[in-house]
Amino acid sequence: MRVFRRVAISIISILTAFVVCAILIRTQKSSPIEVYRALYTYGLGSWAAFSSTLNTATPLIFTGISAAIAFASGVVNLGQHGQLLMGAVTTAILGVYLNIPSWLGIPVLAVVGGFAGALWAGIAAMLKRHYEMDEFISTLMLNFIGEYFTIYLATYPFLDRKAYVPATRLIKRVYFMPDFNGLNVAFFVAVFVLVLSFWYMKMTRQGYESRMMGYNVEFARVGGCAVESNSTFVLLFTGFLSGLAGALLILGGTQHRFMKGIGANFGWDGVMIAIIANNNVIETFFYGLFFGILKNGAIGMEFETSVPSEFILFLEAIIVLCVVGTRSAIEYYSQAIRSLTKLRKVVAEK
């Protein structure tokens, strides 16, 4: 029942968002039907489009699940962006110098990238544990430090002199992650992470404690949950997921090197996806896919129509507002209707 309700809310709000955007496209004298058709064709229409969509969605799924687990545990990790960059730069640098066989190198590089992200989140975890510093601020600030620190690394010590922009050298070709017919292995890692995260949150004792902390931290503390060490673990684990996202971007993406801007907006998109998914990891996965369709379709849309791809950012924002708004509106009105019918009944009984 609850699952059905949530799916229904998502579908209604996405449709609402599409209608609102259609009106806006219309006012710009473009055809909404053409725009949406292009979105569909380039986002879902063929295997090539679909596999490319899944590749685009992969980093979003990682950062989204990272944010969802953190928020659901009452840990405000907003540092996905910085953690992702630290993971990416570590993997990119090691990928140039490491000299081991491919079957071992790829997993090692991915995991080391993840640990780099965990380490970056670990700074916030340490500040929280020892100085009671709010991770909300520390993770946020570490984003900026991470951003410029990684650019520094790519601009000075590890600069590839042949590149036109500040970038590290290409990683060894043996460490390029394989793909199946265009679908990169990184996506399967994302699916694995989804299953692992779901299992952690729903089945394990620590996951139970974490969720209870998210609902009511005083309740959890008094009930005997290990609030401090769970928070630390959640920060490290979600940092690891973001770092892994960065590592896979290097190993499996298209650049295979660290360059300025490679983190795009994955960190913040992940936070946004987690919020619309109500911090539920499964919903986060599906919203990640959906935003992948939009991002990938946007490129085609720009080809075919006069609507610029930035329009998708606009559509995304409207969708977020619609989902959150619809959820509250449905809640509010269904309660109002229920209390009104109850009032009628009570008055009639008198």
């Binding site: 004792r205 139970y208 404690e209 969720r211 209870m212 609902y215 009511n216 005083e218 309740f219 008094v222």
Partner: peptide, 24 residues
Amino acid sequence: PQDRKYVGLALKATILENLIMTHH
């Protein structure tokens, strides 16, 4: 605890989850 709403229970978790706290 004296405050059942804010310490004794997690009002947004399920009844089941509330009942197994500490037992876990």
